Amino acid sequence: MHLPLHGANPHKVYQSSNIEMPEIIIDLSENVNALGVPIEIQNMWPQMVELLESYPDELADPLRTKLAQFHQLPDEHIIVSNGASESLAVLARYFRGKKACILQPSFSEYERTLLAENVQVESLIVEDISQYAFSIAKVKQAMNDAQAVYLCNPNNPTGVLIGADTIEQLARHGLKHNCTIVVDEAFMDWTDEAESVIPLIAKYDNLIVVRSMTKMYSLAGIRLGYILTQKAPNLRKHYSHWNVSNIAIKIGERCLELGEFVNHSIQMNEIWREDVKSFLMNIGCEVSESRTNYLLFKLPKKFQAHDFFQYLLKKGIVLRHTYNFIGLDGEWFRIAIKTPTNMKIFRNVFKSYVQSR
């Protein structure tokens, strides 16, 4: 069985599992905002036709300039990208032939893109999954002969936040050993941003932050992200011309003005997430200390992970498997936090599984 490497595209999960796909499914494998596309973005859509005739600005301005203002950084320290995934591919080319460490479990694209560029990859597996606890000393030791270390904060798939002070310690150590710290903050906007290391960019020239605009605003279909770093002028040459469309630029500008939508999304998500977390813990699951719009959980020992996954698929519930997350080996599941209606259906199916076993 060769399951898809990422969430979403549930039909591929059913094909790989050789299970007939129910007419109605609930996809809990992808992590876009359960509230959907903001109404302000929906209202813009009819006006987008006029943007199709012209080429976009090569640097994705005015979005780049507005992002610089938003994060209080110089324009030249920001590169707008075709989703965060484009920046990950560019960074892999930047580190071609070198050595990189990845704190695991983490987003599988780090390793995939790095290996494609002949980067030697060392996985540093955390000591506690649900708390995402790790030894700073061990990471520093691994950095001594590496040119990069990748961190996901909040972590995907656990949703756990790493303190900005911890990452600053690593950045400071990296300066002594010519090691760059890559921090993927794709889900940081689901938090109060207190642990973001964007404010440290002006202080550390070995720090690269990757951001996504597709998760909070439910914009996975248009692909929009950006990186922030003093290294931006050197990295820019690795990006293609016109890599971000006019439509994405215009939508990105509007998203920066939607603070009320972001705050409401965070508030609702926290309520819904804690409700699901309580349910899972009452069942006896081990659950991560997530601060995002997803949770990671492990079944009680009396249940078998593969059997559970298949049972839910047959009932129309698609979870994110973890076979390709280093350190999880398919024994854990990531679940996106969706509307109360959908989460109630998930709880009922889970209860029926428990009763049937």
Score class of each variant (00 low, 15 high):
253 E>D: 09
259 G>K: 10
39 I>D: 14
125 I>W: 00
55 Y>D: 12
137 A>V: 12
222 I>W: 06
45 W>I: 15
36 G>F: 05
63 L>H: 01
54 S>C: 10
242 W>L: 12
309 F>H: 15
308 F>V: 12
220 A>E: 11
216 M>G: 02
295 L>R: 08
99 K>L: 11
301 K>R: 15
166 T>A: 11
112 R>M: 13
95 F>K: 03
4 P>D: 01
348 N>M: 14
27 D>P: 05
41 I>N: 04
38 P>V: 10
145 D>R: 13
236 R>V: 11
180 T>N: 08
264 H>W: 10
252 G>E: 06
298 K>W: 00
318 V>C: 13
255 C>W: 10
287 V>E: 06
94 Y>K: 04
170 L>G: 00
212 S>P: 07
70 F>Y: 15
6 H>Y: 09
7 G>A: 02
127 E>T: 14
70 F>A: 01
296 L>P: 01
260 E>D: 15
34 A>W: 02
2 H>F: 11
84 A>K: 08
25 I>C: 03
314 K>M: 12
272 W>C: 07
186 A>V: 11
172 R>N: 09
52 L>W: 06
233 P>H: 03
178 N>Q: 15
34 A>T: 05
279 F>W: 11
202 A>Y: 04
230 Q>V: 03
203 K>H: 10
62 P>V: 06
121 V>P: 07
345 I>F: 12
178 N>S: 15
226 Y>G: 01
151 L>N: 00
289 E>L: 13
326 I>Q: 14
222 I>A: 00
158 T>G: 07
239 Y>A: 03
193 E>F: 13
307 D>K: 13
55 Y>M: 14
328 L>E: 00
204 Y>M: 06
138 K>G: 06
340 P>G: 10
241 H>E: 13
219 L>D: 00
209 V>M: 04
297 F>Q: 07
69 Q>T: 11
160 V>N: 01
337 I>M: 12
266 I>H: 03
3 L>V: 01
276 V>Q: 10
121 V>Q: 04
332 W>I: 03
142 A>T: 06
277 K>W: 00
173 H>E: 13
138 K>N: 15
114 L>R: 01
188 M>T: 07
29 S>I: 02
49 V>W: 05
62 P>D: 07
182 V>G: 03
111 E>C: 08
163 G>F: 13
25 I>V: 13
305 A>G: 06
166 T>E: 12
29 S>D: 05
191 T>F: 05
65 T>Y: 01
122 E>P: 06
105 P>T: 04
139 V>W: 00
277 K>H: 03
198 I>A: 04
200 L>C: 05
19 I>W: 05
38 P>D: 10
299 L>G: 00
322 T>Y: 04
114 L>I: 07
171 A>W: 01
168 E>H: 07
51 L>R: 09
152 C>V: 14
52 L>E: 09
277 K>P: 04
302 K>S: 11
147 Q>C: 10
273 R>V: 04
112 R>S: 09
93 R>Y: 06
45 W>N: 13
85 S>K: 12
